[in-house]
């Protein structure tokens, strides 16, 4: 089923910035994780996911984020979310995402401290 979802990625120093566009469901989650695996995790300090253009996420999408968090954490890297919609933020709290990932006002705020 073709549902528009898009993602962009950008390396800034030792950090990776991902920006998502659209519904983070199975298809969206798969796109995020495959974009993430394009980069060698060993060389990264921080990964920032900008959710400004994603207002909806389901639990399948969250399971991909959890997989990402597990990989990142075991490699001494840290994940941050920015521009989180209040509904998604509440969902992340319930699903325990913020136990292993941070949130920030903007990607710049996270990357400025690198």
């Amino acid at each position: 089923m073709s549902v528009e979802f898009d993602i962009t990625s950008e390396i800034r120093g030792n950090n990776l910035l991902l920006k998502t566009f659209g519904y983070i469901n199975n298809a969206g989650g798969e796109r995020i994780i495959s974009e993430f695996y394009k980069y060698p995790i060993g060389g990264l300090d921080k990964i920032v996911i900008d959710l400004e253009n994603s207002k909806v996420i389901n639990s399948i999408g969250i399971s991909y984020l959890i997989e990402m968090i597990e990989t990142i954490t075991s490699n001494n890297c840290k994940l941050f979310f920015t521009n989180i919609d209040p509904t998604i933020e509440k969902t992340f709290k319930i699903m325990g995402i913020f136990q292993f990932a941070g949130k920030a006002e903007s990607a710049e705020a996270v990357l400025a401290n690198s």
Binding site: V3, N58, S59
Partner: peptide, 12 residues
């Protein structure tokens, strides 16, 4: 529709 999709994991 948005809530229904997220709560049931419906693709659409």
């Amino acid at each position: 529709l948005e809530r229904l999709s997220t709560v049931t994991n419906a693709a659409s």
